[in-house]
Each structure stands twice: as structure tokens, then as C-alpha cells.
């Protein structure tokens, strides 16, 4: 059994369907807010539903919002995304302002969930100059050289050592 899927997924930054190149398609498909009508833990959720929900739905017509009252259970929001991803988030004892912010996070996510980024940038075409060959960036005078050549025996960019510099300084002095 592989261990890969047991913990946090890993991957690269991606945008599904080149989102935003042509047009921007909001990725949050639907949200289900589950709450209790009487329990204290759902107080913030009830306040959100009473005061802000209609406006939230009006501002995000691409996201279907479902309400699911259930007796004496902790409030929860489940967001589903276009890429078949699903985010579950508890809203227990959360004040209304915080709920607004968290719903904003869920609404603007892409549904990939928590992910460990293998690197912070990613490109499908890492080299636009083509594959490397031994002749890439070679000095043009090598075209007409005959080999073996003494000038090519030393390592490139060889700098004089500290001893050599001091010796040279001594010679210049005398």
C-alpha cells in the first residue's frame, strides 16, 4: 500500500481548464449549510442566515446554497467544487463575522483542498530555449580550433590562488 494518500496531498499550483485565460469560472459549485434551529452552537450561523444569506446568494449566482436544519447537531458547511473536490468545515460557536470570512474562503477556493506544494512555482514548459546540448553557449572560436588544444586544457575561468597573487605582488615590489 502506498502511503501517499494517507496524509496531506502534494502537488503543484494549477488552474483547472486554464481558468481566467478566457473567462473566469467560479469553482465553488454548491454549499450546504447544516445547522440547528435552537442550539446555542449554531447561533452565529442563524444570525448569518437571517441577515446575510440572501445577499450572499445574490452576489454568487453560480453557487447553489442549500440550508439543512438538523436538530441538536453542530453546525457545518460543506462546499463542493467543479473538480469533484469537497470541503467540510465545522462552524461550531463561530460568530457571524467569522462565518462570512470563512465562507468567502470556501467560495473562492478551487477545491484542491489542503495541499503541500512541491514548489511555489510551476510550469509545463521549463525550458523555452530547447534541450541542452554540449554545444549550448560554447564560444564561437571553438568552431575552427584543432583538438587537442593546449588552450583548452585548463578548467574555464581559472582564478589565480592567494599564494600566486602574493608571489606576483612580491615580484612587482622587487
Amino acid at each position: 500500500m502506498s502511503v501517499n494518500s494517507l496524509f496531506t496531498k502534494s502537488g503543484y499550483v494549477t488552474a483547472p481548464l486554464a481558468n481566467g485565460v478566457g473567462r473566469y469560472i467560479p469553482q465553488c459549485l454548491r454549499m450546504t449549510i447544516k445547522f440547528c434551529k435552537s442550539h446555542g452552537g449554531s447561533r452565529g450561523v442563524r444570525e448569518f442566515i437571517e441577515n446575510h444569506l440572501v445577499e450572499f446568494a445574490r452576489q454568487n449566482p453560480g453557487t447553489v446554497v442549500y440550508l439543512k436544519p438538523r436538530r441538536h447537531r453542530s453546525p457545518v458547511v460543506v462546499a463542493e467544487y467543479l473538480n469533484e473536490g469537497r470541503e467540510w468545515m465545522p462552524l461550531h460557536d463561530m460568530p457571524c463575522e467569522e462565518i462570512i470570512k470563512w465562507l468567502g474562503v470556501l467560495r473562492t477556493s478551487a477545491g484542491y483542498g489542503e495541499m503541500h506544494y512541491r514548489s511555489y512555482q510551476h510550469t509545463d514548459t521549463p525550458s523555452i530555449q530547447g534541450p541542452w546540448t554540449p554545444f549550448t553557449h560554447q564560444p564561437p572560436e571553438k568552431n575552427i580550433m584543432t583538438f587537442p588544444n593546449d588552450a583548452c586544457q585548463d578548467p574555464p575561468l581559472l582564478k589565480p590562488s592567494a599564494t600566486e597573487i602574493i608571489k606576483k605582488m612580491y615580484q612587482n615590489q622587487s
Partner: peptide, 15 residues
């Protein structure tokens, strides 16, 4: 590509 459909509210703002 056309970009006229792009302006979406990316910052959560409900109030």
C-alpha cells in the same frame, strides 16, 4: 481571448 467576463469579486465582501 476575450476577457470581458473577468471582473469577479475575489475579495469576500458580504456586508
Amino acid at each position: 481571448f476575450q476577457t470581458d467576463n473577468f471582473p469577479m469579486q475575489l475579495i469576500p465582501h458580504v456586508r
